[in-house]
């Protein structure tokens, strides 16, 4: 049972901003699979929901001006089904595939997952390594913010009361591979205990190769380890190097000990192993050493 609230479904952007301007505490309703859960709790009174699903502005996956634009209302299922995402932005596809369950994926949206900004959010680490940008729209126009700046803290993103996340933009690179791996307690629907995304630009050209790594559910927000990225970029990735990479990754995180899903020691061990798995699948590990 939900707590009581009012509901509006604006049909134009003008209507939307009229509502957001007048109701600072209003919540934007997208897929609802995160927000509606909170409406069951006594602790968070909600007075008004503004459903943006009647607006066309936030839908669709399209290639535009050298980047891929996903409307904030793009469902996880649509991401999972997108050929270009599977082939080009594979980490995002991996995240979509392990997100919730089919019924949840049919409703949940990429925008909702990001704005909710949970530490273990499935799409956090893929978007961080893909250097995504958040396209935010408000009464005064559009802002574009790099994802790592947009994603400020636990449950906190850079959105003013009258602004709405409109889309996610992903830069396009000719040569780019990526994977996302996560662990969970059961094999069916479960939240991630820990997740890692690995991306490589120009993967076949060792000298020019650029590697990026982000870890999820290990800190307040998705965490990129730049030192390790430097260690892995432009060099052959040998097993020897991998050993020190794993150590560095492990040392770079201090997950909270109160997590119900896994203790810090396990997460610290797993970020390295998941990274190894992703590197292996991306063909970035030197063989026979």
């Amino acid at each position: 049972m939900f707590k009581k609230f009012d509901y509006y479904a604006p049909k134009t952007l003008a209507e939307l901003f009229e509502l957001t301007n007048e109701n600072n505490e209003a919540q934007i309703l997208a897929g609802g699979t995160d927000l509606l859960l909170k409406l069951r709790e006594k602790t968070t009174p909600h007075k008004m929901l503004i459903d943006i699903k009647k607006l066309d502005n936030f839908r669709g996956i399209e290639t535009k001006d050298g980047y891929l634009r996903m409307g904030a209302l793009t469902t996880i299922r649509e991401i999972q089904a997108s050929k270009i995402i599977r082939e080009k932005y594979t980490a995002l596809y991996d995240a979509a595939k392990s997100f919730g369950c089919l019924e949840i994926r049919n409703r949940a949206t990429i925008g909702g997952n990001i704005v909710h900004a949970s530490p273990g959010a499935e799409f956090g680490t893929p978007l961080f390594v893909l250097a995504a940008e958040a396209e935010v729209i408000g009464p005064d126009g559009t802002r574009v913010i790099p994802i790592h700046e947009f994603w400020q803290d636990v449950y906190q993103v850079d959105l003013k009361d009258n602004e709405v996340l409109a889309a996610i933009r992903l830069p396009y690179y000719e040569k780019m591979v990526s994977r996302y791996h996560r662990l969970s307690r059961v094999k069916g629907m479960d939240l991630a205990i820990v997740g890692v995304s690995v991306l490589a630009l120009d993967p076949a050209n060792i000298e020019k190769r650029e590697v990026k790594i982000a870890m999820g559910a290990v800190a307040r927000i998705p965490f990129r380890n730049k030192e390790v990225e430097t260690m892995l970029s432009g060099v052959k990735i040998t097993n020897e190097l991998l050993v020190s990479v794993k150590e560095k990754l492990s040392d770079s995180i201090a997950p909270r000990s109160s997590s119900l899903r896994a203790k810090p020691a396990y997460k610290k061990a797993m970020v390295g192993n998941l990274t190894e798995q992703a590197l292996l699948e991306l063909g970035l590990l030197e063989e026979g050493e």
Partner: peptide
């Protein structure tokens, strides 16, 4: 059911 995990079909 988020954090009390019972066997799922996939298990």
């Amino acid at each position: 059911f988020t954090d009390f995990k019972i066997p799922t079909p996939e298990d």
